[in-house]
Design a protein around this nucleic acid. Sequence first.
RNA 1: GCGAUCGUAGCUCAGUUGGCAGAGCACCUGGUUGUGGUCCAGGAUGUCGCGGGUUCGAGCCCCGUCGAUCGCCCCA
Length: 454
Amino acid sequence: MASSKKFQGPRGTRDFYPADMAVRRYIESVWRTTSINHGFDEVEGPTFEHLELYTHKSGPGIVSELFSFKRAGGETEYALRPEFTPTLARMVAARAAELPKPIKWFAIPGHYRAERPQRGRLREFFQWNVDVVGGDRTPDADKEVIATAVSALEKLGLGPAEVKVRIGDREVVTSLLSSVGCADEFHTEALSLLDKKDKIPQDQFQHAAQTLHLDYPLLIEHANAVQRMASQCLGTRTDPAPAMHFRQNEVHLPMEWIDSLARALTDSNVHDWCVFDFSIARGLAYYTGTVFEVIADGERAVAGGGRYDKLIESFGGPSMPACGFGMGDVVLGLLLHDKGLLPDEVYLAPLRPHVFVISNGAEQPEAELPRLIAQLRKAGCHVRHTYRATRNVGKLLGEADKLRSRTAIILGDELMEGRVVLKDLEGGEQREVALDDLERALREVLDAQENAGV
RNA sequence: GCGAUCGUAGCUCAGUUGGCAGAGCACCUGGUUGUGGUCCAGGAUGUCGCGGGUUCGAGCCCCGUCGAUCGCCCCA
């Protein structure tokens, strides 16, 4: 006797029922078309890698955040990929010489992290990765990936009022740290301290700052001054490009990079979306220059990225500049939902049947029904029909409507004269069409709907 | 890994001191064997997350467990 047991999906995973899958495909299609429009090629790697690939740069501490495993009876340790960048670095390093530069790749892989699920954080999720690797080391690459992210957000219906790209720079912050007496060996720790300043009690922060010889008030004074200068460049075009410098007391900080980045963002017309904020560090140790994140009220970061100029060589490739970002589907989905940007008609549009074919139940229509369905499908149409016993035309039109079919074809008595009824379910108009002319007439109606934007 | 709150129909949720398992939406059928979104009538729907305990009796109380949410840790 077989016992029955109810199974739940594992913690932190999701089931994608048709409506959920439609939303996912909608988001992915925006990511994909945006990437391609911006000149990126799609790549993919394995879902699991050698565990070493992840411990190599991040250290053994990362293992507790991974799903790692050995094959039964095997010794090799593997891990489900928690991020795409190591795979990307490995792929680039393996063919660095032959790939045309700059390498512009995107991927939409699944990722797996053994964390405690929370709002916007799951154990399985999909992340859009966009990277520029190689070529000249200029802020133009940073601008390209930021503009690509913004372009996708815009296509999804978001605007600068809902989301901001917060841009910082590791080099600027480390220079400022040095300028206030924080020694080089404390920089990494200082960056992570700054990153979590708002999350820890003030006295604890001050104590930590003291042990790192970090004069926080002075740092902030300098950072704010730099921020003001940087912000002035946003919205200013490239033409007259004065070499900007930040000078204050003993501090001298060249600002060419920030300056050019700001102007490039302006030339690409995405400056309205951007703000400079030199307090952002991003947790990841491999960032070397520009770092940025896309933020929205009430949700955690929608995307995060930056420049990682040393990473490719650390995976055995040549020294190559690189920058990129990742945008997860979970927080983005929540945000779109919050803002009411996921009405049915948006994500269901690609799933709408072109035509719903109805027979009135008479002998000839019943015989014609499967032939016509096959013919229209062969012609490339999304065709549906009822599985119910009723041949009540009113009920079946109701079914067609529920499926959001664009048109309906009714096979009835007119068939004796070789005609059928073609009905536009958007407007409601219908007419009799000769069977021979049906494909053409159907296309006409569908084209008209497309032109009308429905 | 730690702490708090929660888990009742497909969905959103009611459910009194412990006393017959409920509503709306959605679904199905009919009103109507040829014209859709409305309307009317009817119908089906449950291991009350799961397991154990207390009790004459548990959706309700107790213990455990799984899952979700929020926070901590971490954030690629």
